[in-house]
Design a protein around this nucleic acid. Structure first.
Lengths: 380, 380
DNA sequence: GGTATATCTGAATCACTTA
DNA sequence: ATAAGTGATTCAGATATAC
């Protein structure tokens, strides 16, 4: 089924009690029929993330032609037709309710939409108890112009990222995102081209296989940001399987739901061809949080720092001495590198690793540099 | 009151029947008290646009410090506190209902918000019958980082632009927007810096006068895009009066509502200092729709084009001859520049102005160039 | 006086572990 | 459950200060 069954979740995230076994899930399968029914077949709290690209309820009017006379192939498929907002809302509430049941307590929900539907989806998911963490703007580098000159070029779509609730835990690979964005924090607006060219799946007659195929780059960022290798990702509106293809590539398990057989066939063929990246390529920058926490004392213990070494702040306003137990002292103050730094500055908090420096061959270096060296040394 | 009473709406937009007289409106005034009550004092269908920056219902938790220990001055004002989504929704429904009543049938509604509230606002305004024309993303060039490294940097806010209904007319200054965007269609994502520096209004103690003052560039684009000089703009959450200041500068009338006296005082002082642009600066690029339509025949009549001149398409597949009455002929086909172009290409439509070209000093130029010259010549 | 450098701040639903 | 203690974390732009 094109799945990477060897991959398991890191032990740090394993829930021993009531944990759903991976073998009991239809991993690497596209469940046929209505997605709400299909999701009912899955156990509670069994997937780590849901990515959903539901019908947008576009409600388009007449035909549209380009200035050169060619015809615009719009989304007029039957699955995008709803008779009223009330019916669309009920449909939305139903699939979101099932998604919420199936999602683990620390799982992430992602939904993508346009102004036609995203406000309704967002309000309903809030009503159900989901807690919005960010709204993300997918800025299309190559959107279709507004041929009639009647509005602004519709150049973006909106994604909502939500956790199970206000107090719920969730996973965010901060370091991986920052690395991906050239060492600046990843922002809430992402520039990504629309899905076209080789990536766009075609039918035998050369016509596009699906009217709203999403770019793989979009799913790549979503899955890298909020899931780990070995996680299970569910897509209730699988379409031609972009979520499955990227999940497989990134070593995530996947489950899809899709009503239309034609889409299921295209998706399965596509995903079978996909090759998973090997394990070393999958390793992402570790966030400080999930990295082993280093106690300052461990550096002293390991001989990276001798007791008696003098520490300074950057401007040499204060000087402290390292003691054998990993505490430091500065005049009458003593305690952890964080606590002493905080008290001296009379600040509400202080990161001792970046506040304190030591002199090494005439240069002043923050303690953090030493911590990095220590981490490298103990990694293996 | 700092208003430009000389300015009136162009006659093309005047509604003779049931029209509200400008003298009967509190132009250039900030109505005190609750905005819903204040709007009740205005007649039906009396304003051309509503711009609303309602409370975002942020629901913030504890304190936040920057990595350097400094404190982040968050929005904790009483006017942003709501006990539940239900109460916020009711408040939203109430002010939107009044705004809808006061807005003319061909008026524009603008609302700005963040992910905390915008989905609720969007769904409710759709429920009330407003028709969303675009959602606009204000991309902040200098957003506040996510200091905890727990989410994506919240780098944008969302605006919704809506008309009174699916079939309602509305006004969009397409040409002005395209000109503003360097001859490319204006997109739905706008890059604008946050309001800081000189533009940010300060109290006597140097502290910011309002926690959420919007940049004037944002209002400038909104008003230029969807209102005309002489129009009336209503802002139910006036704050420190960015809407009023920009409206006055652009020769639009304005009405504000604001509960807090401190904000009203700051706003009035600010707007009094604002100078309106003079009339010639206010002239924007005319849209094709509101520009006098040029009949091809008028160019012939005026001697811009001699009967007998040969026209070509860009690739010189076809050649047509201009006739004295402004029709053209090409083989057996004859008729208007649009109709002949359409039939030759077997296309559903054809813009003859851009399809047909003529040779001038060895260069091939579209007819449209000639039309522009003609328009310039007849302007005075 | 001009150029570096330092400081300040902005609509933010902003932690986790152990006692 | 709640409270307390420890630990982790920032980008662009405007203004102020130093050289």
């Amino acid at each position: 089924m094109g799945e990477v069954l060897e991959i398991t979740r890191p032990k740090t995230r394993a829930k021993k009690r009531l944990a759903v076994k991976l073998e009991d899930l239809p991993l690497g399968q596209i469940l046929p029929g209505d997605c709400i029914e299909a999701m009912r077949s899955l156990p509670d709290a069994s997937v780590d993330a849901v990515f959903a690209d539901p019908p947008y309820n576009l409600q388009l009017g007449g035909d549209l032609n380009r200035p050169d006379g060619s015809h615009v192939d719009a989304v007029t498929d039957h699955w995008d037709q709803f008779d009223s907002f009330a019916i669309y809302d009920q449909f939305t509430r139903d699939w979101l309710t099932e998604a919420r049941r199936v999602l683990k307590p620390d799982g992430s929900l992602w939904v993508i939409g346009s102004y036609h539907n995203i406000f309704r989806v967002g309000a309903i998911l809030q009503d159900l108890g989901f807690w919005i963490l960010n709204d993300i703007v997918w800025r299309k580098s190559n959107p279709m112009p507004n041929f009639r000159g009647t509005r602004f070029t519709n150049a973006h779509e909106t994604l909502i990222w939500a956790s199970q609730g206000e107090k719920a835990k969730y996973h965010f690979n901060y370091r991986a995102m920052k690395t991906l964005n050239d060492e600046l924090q990843m922002r809430s607006d992402w520039v990504i081209p629309i899905c076209a060219g080789q990536e766009r799946l075609k039918q035998d007659d050369g016509h596009k296989a699906h009217p709203t195929q999403k770019p793989e780059a979009l799913l790549y960022r979503v899955l890298l940001a909020t899931t780990e290798a070995g996680d299970v990702v569910l897509d209730p509106f699988f379409g031609t399987g972009t979520t499955g293809a990227v999940a497989k590539r990134l070593g995530r398990h996947w489950i899809g739901c899709e009503r239309e057989k034609a889409y299921r066939d295209v998706a399965m063929k596509r995903i079978d061809k996909e090759l998973p990246l090997d394990e070393s390529a999958l390793k992402t920058m570790q966030s400080r949080k999930s990295a082993p926490r280093v106690a300052f004392g461990a550096l002293v213990e390991a001989g990276f720092l001798k007791p008696g070494t003098e520490l300074f702040d950057k401007k040499r306003r204060w000087c402290a001495t390292v003691r054998a137990d990993g505490s430091i002292s500065c005049g009458k103050q003593s305690g952890s590198i964080h606590g002493v730094g905080k008290d001296l500055q009379e600040a509400p908090s202080c990161n001792g690793w970046t506040f304190w420096h030591l002199e090494h061959e005439g240069k002043i270096e923050p303690l953090d540099t030493l911590r990095q060296l220590y981490l490298l040394a103990v990694e293996d």
